[in-house]
């Protein structure tokens, strides 16, 4: 156990850091208002500075490590642990005297119920030793014992209090966690979990029509948002326009859940399927699992089918690979949405 003191020109805040624990996780679980987005070494939002020799790099190959100015002592809070009692210089925009009431925790958990949904998409459940109260749209960091860094996964389920978290994962060639899920599925695998985290969330008090543009496993957090919205009868009074994309028909999943959701308020819920790959020698069916299907990318189908009127003025949730996110953001902005109404996580 070491003492880590976050400092800036406005103040200082000391927290305890367990052996091998990241500075971000140590700070967040003790209420430090640290900046982050992915928590998994991808986005570089949590860059801070450390004195040489006082910290230990948990994952030198993290995707965002290349963005660091190492000569200036920059580190990723999410991928750095304390080697000794140390001071960490953070942005002066952070009010270190204002502790957060949202305090994620670290758990030793069990990974169970792996189910292959498609050839490269699987669902699984993480059983926690105690209940948590995530906000719809949040994520957890997960790590198997042989992984260097945590990976971020959004929950697909929503319950106000639960010890069971459901996830969906796309197969990553060469990925360690991926290989556990797809190659050697075994019940009751031990994992570490840290959460809940993230800000791409939904509150039923936001009395807004929704637009959801998602591709593949990027649907995860949006499923949680939709389940909470359904639970509070949000779509009795508000509209949903959604496009769910995949490359091919056989890559689709969660269709029965989406069809069931639409059936709860068919006048207010519009859900479309977008398939980006051409089907050689076959006509694309008009309907897949009771949902209208279209050829094209998610953002193109959204514009063609919905147009600006189905997007402007709504609260947007988007999820998918980086290029798809960029295309959807561009479509939403051109439809007049302010950036404050566009919510997403960027894990890849």
């Amino acid at each position: 156990m070491t003492e880590v003191t976050f400092i800036n020109k406005g103040g200082r805040l000391t927290v305890e850091c367990k052996d091998g624990e990241s500075l971000l996780q140590a700070g967040l679980r003790q209420g430090a208002p640290l900046p982050y987005a992915c928590g998994a070494g991808v986005c570089a939002t949590c860059v801070a500075r450390a004195k040489p020799g006082t910290t230990r790099d948990l994952w030198p190959e993290a995707p965002a490590a290349g963005e660091l100015k190492v000569d200036k002592g920059e580190v990723l809070l999410c991928q750095t642990s304390a080697a000794k009692d140390c001071e960490i210089l953070v942005s002066s925009k952070i009010d270190l005297s204002s502790l957060s009431s949202l305090r994620p925790k670290r758990f030793k958990a069990k990974l169970i119920d792996i189910c292959n949904e498609t050839s490269d998409v699987a669902t699984f459940r993480v059983q926690l030793p105690e209940t948590v109260s995530p906000i719809a749209g949040q994520y957890f960091l997960l790590r198997s014992p042989d992984m260097q860094g945590f990976r971020a996964y959004s929950m697909t389920n929503y319950e106000s209090s639960t010890d069971a978290l459901d996830f969906v994962m796309k197969k990553v060639p060469g990925g360690i966690f991926s290989s556990h899920i797809f190659s050697e599925p075994s019940e009751d695998m031990n994992v570490e979990a840290f959460g809940p985290m993230g800000f791409a969330t939904f509150s039923p008090s936001e009395a807004r029509d929704l637009v959801c543009l998602v591709g593949g496993s990027g649907i995860a957090g949006i499923m949680s948002v939709l389940k909470q919205a359904e639970a509070v009868n949000h779509f009795k009074r508000h509209k949903l326009f959604m496009v769910f994309g995949a490359r091919r028909i056989e890559d689709l999943f969660f269709l029965s859940e989406l069809a069931s959701l639409r059936a709860t308020a068919p006048d207010n819920i519009s859900i479309h399927i977008a398939l980006s790959d051409q089907i050689d020698g076959h006509e694309l069916p008009d309907i897949i699992h009771d949902l209208p299907a279209h050829q094209g990318f998610v953002h193109d189908v959204a514009q063609t089918v919905g147009g600006d009127e189905f997007m402007s003025g709504r609260l947007a949730f988007i999820g998918g690979p980086p290029q798809m996110l960029n295309s959807c953001i561009a479509s939403l902005l051109s439809s007049g949405l302010p950036v404050s109404d566009i919510r997403y996580d960027r894990f890849a």
């Binding site: 987005a37 986005c43 939002t45 996110l325 960029n326 953001i329 561009a330 902005l333 051109s334 950036v339 566009i342 960027r346």
Partner: peptide, 16 residues
């Protein structure tokens, strides 16, 4: 890679 233009507005899609 991340700069999106629409009208006279430039948006960086990383943090908007």
């Amino acid at each position: 890679e991340s700069g999106l233009c629409h009208g006279l507005t430039l948006t960086c899609s990383k943090h908007l």
